[in-house]
Simulated scan of single mutants.
Amino acid sequence: MLYLCATPIGNLEDMTYRAVRVLSEVSVIAAEDTRHTRKLLSHFEIHTRLVSYHEHNKVTRGPEIIERLLTGEDVAVVSDAGLPGISDPGSDLVQLAIEAGIQVVPLPGANAALSALVSSGLDTTMFTFIGFLPKNKKKRRELLTSFAANPYTMVFYESPHRIKQTLTELSGAFGERPAVAARELTKKFEEFIRGSLETLAVHFAENDPRGEFTLIVGGQTCDEDLELQEADGEQLTLEEAVIRLMETGVAKKEAIKTIALKRGLSKREVYQATLE
């Protein structure tokens, strides 16, 4: 059998009893980063043999793992964190296994995308998982443009080094949308920054981003107010602009800060206008 074994995304207590048992019993564990996985195995006193399986060796290592399975060995696949097959080459190995008639068994567990989504406060009825954006600027732009009219909540993964740029590009492609940045999920400094794409951009302009991020972004709504805000924002009064932003779920304080930045005014000026 080929086991797809979820591993903790931060907190080691999220490892399941079943995962510990299976990792102890299989013949070999195929790991994205053997050094990282060895620390996890050591914590749970698991001594199973490790082999590397990642994006750069999947073409040669994949068939080798399939050969092991065909000779009767059980193999577990793990990524550095979360579910293998999500934003890593585990999905390629699954396809090879299915083609070879090998049984594929999922071992559910921690997942950053779903953990962030259910805690975001945004619509979870239907959602679109996008993960990491392409590194090529043109491909990123084309992908974001294709999702501009997507009505469902969207889930992105991003590193702390690119989060500012990504928020700028998301704002450019989608306009003003409710958004949540979840960082360091399940870890000591877990944090949810809720607001909009613009207020998140302001937040990270003032606070250095740290840790790995999961971004949750609202889908395109039928509400024409959002489109009017994007098209006619500069024609609105300060009070109207703040109200429009608050209607997307942004707190008043953050809305005032965002409008002040956008109009080149002080926060006090915008605050006084809303009082009037």
Rank of each mutant, 00 (worst) to 15 (best):
G85W: 02
E25T: 13
K135Q: 14
E247R: 14
R68H: 07
L133K: 01
R244G: 10
K188Y: 04
V118P: 00
E32D: 07
K137R: 15
N207Y: 12
P63M: 04
A251R: 11
I163A: 00
L41C: 09
A179V: 06
G172H: 07
M126V: 14
K187T: 08
A30Y: 02
G219V: 05
E227Q: 12
L12K: 04
R18H: 09
H203S: 12
T237P: 10
V51E: 13
Y271L: 07
P178H: 01
G82K: 03
K252I: 07
A100F: 10
T48V: 11
Y17Q: 11
T186W: 05
E227Y: 06
L143Q: 10
V20Q: 06
Q235G: 10
T124R: 00
E73L: 15
L96N: 00
T37Y: 01
L200I: 10
G85D: 05
L107N: 02
M1I: 05
L133H: 00
V22R: 02
R21H: 12
K188Q: 07
L197E: 04
G211F: 11
I86Q: 00
T48N: 10
Y53Q: 03
K135R: 15
F189C: 10
A182E: 02
D232E: 12
N207F: 13
G90A: 04
L236W: 01
D208K: 11
L226C: 08
A179R: 02
D33K: 01
L4I: 15
L40P: 09
R177P: 01
H47P: 01
E73Q: 15
N136K: 15
T7Y: 01
V105Y: 03
C222I: 06
A201M: 08
E230C: 08
C5K: 01
N11M: 09
I216M: 05
A260F: 04
L23C: 08
H161T: 05
E13V: 08
Q235W: 09
S115M: 13
A148T: 11
L70R: 12
A100W: 07
R61F: 10
A97R: 01
L200G: 03
R162I: 08
V155C: 01
K137A: 15
V51N: 07
G101V: 14
K267W: 03
P178T: 10
G121A: 12
T48I: 09
G62Y: 01
N136I: 11
Y3D: 02
S91N: 06
D74G: 06
Q235P: 03
F44K: 06
L83Y: 03
E224N: 09
A231I: 12
E190P: 10
L236K: 03
Y53F: 15
H161S: 08
M15P: 07
K187D: 09
E67M: 09
E32N: 06
V75C: 11
L122P: 05
R68S: 14
L215E: 00
Q229H: 12
P108V: 13
L107F: 04
S119Q: 12
T34C: 13
L236I: 04
L275V: 05
L265S: 05
R210D: 02
V51D: 11
L261M: 10
K137D: 13
K253L: 13
A205S: 14
A112P: 04
E191N: 10
